[in-house]
Design a protein around this nucleic acid. Structure first.
Lengths: 243, 243
DNA sequence: CCAAAAGTGTTAGGAGTACACCCATGA
DNA sequence: TCATGGGTGTACTCCTAACACTTTTGG
């Protein structure tokens, strides 16, 4: 079984989904039986890496197997490799034995992904569920997966603060109010609508379309798109440090 | 020989050193004989990870073995794991065979480190050399090590722009002019002395000492230190996004 | 006293912030 | 016609950027 795998190396995905109201994360339910007691634990979707796939490919494969999603935003985070990460809790060890996991330590490489949840292409397996990120702290997770989740959430916020990726949480065509909501919800702040629009429009790489929202019972918003093209051209190092 | 190692996993170090004039990087000379011709190649210091050490420990061990340095700034970058990374050049393959490297692919985890080069604690091995980062592009490096180096340099600049780490390239007590030079040299810009000092002093976590430079033939500068303590206390999320 | 780098204030322009009302649509 | 969120402008404040001379030290 493990002949074509690298037994010491896995990838884990932290898939963040945004539904205009909450930030959610994709978790897998994992019941663990230990000393006769059943524990309802959660884990991140992940898998051991195959010998014949590179690590980005492995991460894409797992995400596709789980959600059917392809070609979505994905960023590698730094690896988690402490010696005892699989065996800190006795019940995790029981579970590893029950699935015949080889007695090897595993270093994992986490990837975070961003998707919009109001789109309809989510064919989840029965054990996968979307969980509000605010509720994760109350769950019990195997191994160091809660630590990895928290690191990923912090990394997501860092990226959001400095890179144009907020729209990866939105449909390809989005309104400025939707975009504002991403920042408001992820940073738990309120932003002034007029100032926000001024700032975004001054960037020039978020471009208005000739299209409006449909099916809303109020004045429909103009839709915008992110232009990678214009962004790359404008990224002329306006040096600025904020340490 | 490989019994206690994880054959598919290595760490590589990108050690940046600053001498007040240039940014340098620590490279290892590696001659490779291929089809009767000797090539003078370079590589990054690195090693396969042992089964009984976690990845941060591995990186620290290698750095200590090479430079005698301990307790210096170190940050993990994201892994490099394409399938063909060791075998893109025929001569790299020849070299792997000559050192009896097992026929396994290797995923590497890079770490970058920062040190000050005017200090004297550098007991380098004979094959290690400090190279001006501007000269690296002209060198030939094994595997994907040039790519890793460039990624590390870009990451260093990103970190410098957003985190208080510039003084990791300086002695513990430094003058504001030295600090300014770090930014000027790493970003290839000129900064206004008065504005720079105003900005740095307004941060409050770079604190003046009661000590001055010695042994200079001009007016001696007041020395400063970075206070991790004050920094942590002040880091009260002043939200600000610059995408 | 000369050379070299340290240290210091002010002003003008631009960016960020605070703030309130009319508009377009569906029900 | 009502409810809902979309869309807009201005004034004030604060931060940033530009700019030149005096001070301290060693030789």
């Amino acid at each position: 079984m493990y002949k074509q795998l690298i037994p010491n190396l896995s990838v884990d995905s932290i898939v963040f989904g945004f539904d205009s109201v909450q930030l959610k994360v994709l978790l897998i339910k994992q019941d663990i039986i230990h000393k006769g007691i059943t524990y309802h634990d959660y884990k991140l979707p992940g898998d051991i890496i195959r010998k014949d796939e590179d690590i980005d490919t492995a991460s894409k494969r797992i995400l596709k197997e789980l959600t059917g999603l392809q070609n979505i935003f994905m960023k590698q985070l730094s690896a988690f490799g402490s010696l005892d990460r699989l065996t800190r809790r006795p019940r995790d060890l029981s579970w590893l034995i029950s699935i015949n996991h080889p007695d090897e330590r595993v270093i994992t490489i986490p990837y975070f992904s961003l998707i919009n949840l109001t789109q309809d292409h989510l064919a989840l397996t029965s054990k996968a569920c979307w969980t509000n990120v605010d509720n994760v702290s109350a769950l019990s997770m195997i191994f160091d997966h809660k630590e990895i989740f928290e690191f990923a959430l912090e990394s997501l916020r860092n990226e959001l603060r400095t890179k144009p990726i907020a729209f990866e949480l939105l449909p390809p065509k989005f309104s400025l109010s939707q975009l504002q909501k991403v920042y408001e919800i992820l940073f738990e702040i309120n932003l002034d609508k007029r100032n926000f629009r001024k700032k975004i429009l001054s960037l020039n790489y978020i471009v208005p379309l000739k299209e409006k929202e449909t099916g809303v019972k109020h004045r429909p918003a103009l839709l915008y798109m992110f232009s990678q093209d214009i962004y790359q051209k404008l990224k002329t190092q306006n040096f600025d440090f904020t340490i």
